[in-house]
Computed example of a mutant assay.
Amino acid sequence: MGVANRLDLTLRLVQGADRISVSELSQRLGVSEMTVRRDLDALERQGLVRRVHGGAVATRAREEGSGFAAREPWQAATKDRLGAAVAALVEPGSRVLLDAGTTTVHVAEHLAARAPLTVAVLSLQAATRLADRPGIDLLIVGGRSRPGEHSFVGPLALRTLESLAFDRFVMSIGGVHAEHGWSEFSLDDAAVKQAGLAQAAATVAVADATKLGVRAFSQVAELGAVDTFVTDAAAADDATHPAGPRTLQALREAGVDTLLA
């Protein structure tokens, strides 16, 4: 296991427990306690965990209460893997709507390899990643930029989306729940996603495994509104994500293709 992936898993294990010991992390990860301490020190410097006697506790803010910059370091290696997997599903020559979010920024990084593409983006971060990339015809949807997120929302964004048609919508999501479907923490973000779903021939949703079993504030759509869901392999591990296997099964029963990256 590479260092970045080990850090991701360490953080996932800390986040999933009220408190976890160095010895337990060592056993779960198959590395020495010295390595665990070094990894916890690195995560603490990023503000993602807090060291306590004999172990660590998570300090990550709840998703709905933290901005893009605060969430960006969370599981960066996992999100990059997801980004590559989603980009591989995009056919050259497609018209793509790319949602806002920390994971879709990684999708943007990998889309250049799928050129030529027309890509409409819903965030300033994605626009920056794709600007001046050869073979990428970049469209910025516009609208109001949400403070802290730099995602485009509001009536102007909705009117722009309603005037366009896409082959594929790459949708990030705040939560996916077996009974309650796809949901978001922001009403504005939920409205933009609903417009994207309506204007795309197919939709790929992407999220790391921590989003499975989560019911956020505003429902976006029923499970079956999405064609493909890409998440990381940890979603199938009920030891770290108790709601993961059940949510994946519900998605499959709803006709959603699931891809574990």
Rank of each mutant, 00 (worst) to 15 (best):
D137Y: 01
A178D: 15
S21P: 02
D39A: 09
S172E: 05
D167V: 10
A115Y: 02
P92R: 01
R45N: 12
E64C: 03
S151K: 01
A201Q: 14
A100H: 07
R38V: 11
T102S: 15
L130M: 10
G2L: 15
L139M: 07
L158D: 10
A87F: 06
V107C: 02
A87S: 07
P242K: 14
V226Y: 06
R81G: 12
A178V: 11
Q194R: 14
S163P: 00
G93N: 11
L117K: 02
L89A: 02
A56D: 12
S94A: 13
V256P: 08
R19D: 05
I173T: 11
I136G: 00
R6D: 12
D208V: 09
A243Y: 14
T210V: 06
T247D: 08
D189V: 03
R114L: 03
A195M: 04
Q125K: 07
V52K: 10
A198I: 08
G142A: 08
R28D: 06
A191K: 11
A120P: 00
F152N: 03
R45W: 13
F217L: 10
S123I: 01
E72V: 04
A261R: 02
L9T: 09
S32I: 09
A234Y: 02
H150P: 00
E184C: 05
L164F: 10
E44L: 02
V153T: 13
R133L: 06
A235S: 14
G2E: 12
G135R: 02
D238I: 06
V230T: 08
S32K: 08
L7A: 11
L156C: 04
S151C: 03
S183V: 05
F185R: 07
V204N: 00
V220R: 00
A108V: 04
L130E: 11
L124K: 04
V192I: 15
D137M: 04
E184H: 06
T59L: 09
L260K: 05
K79Y: 03
F169G: 01
G16C: 10
E253V: 13
A191P: 08
D8S: 10
L158Y: 14
A120G: 04
G55D: 02
S94Q: 07
S172G: 15
R45G: 07
T210H: 12
F152L: 13
F229G: 00
G93R: 14
G83Q: 09
D188Y: 05
A205Y: 01
A261P: 03
E44I: 03
V121H: 11
T258R: 02
V14Q: 15
G154R: 07
E253H: 11
G93S: 08
G244W: 14
M171Y: 08
V31W: 00
G181A: 10
A195N: 09
G175C: 09
T228N: 00
T210K: 11
T35K: 04
R133E: 01
T10I: 13
L139N: 04
D80I: 04
R28Y: 01
D189M: 01
R168H: 09
A233P: 02
E91S: 05
E253G: 05
G196V: 04
M1S: 14
M171A: 15
P134R: 01
A233D: 13
R215F: 01
A127P: 07
A61R: 15
I173W: 03
L11K: 08
L25P: 09
Q46F: 04
E184K: 00
V119R: 00
E72C: 05
S94R: 05
V170E: 08
V153D: 03
A61H: 10
L248G: 05
P92G: 00
R45L: 15
L259H: 11
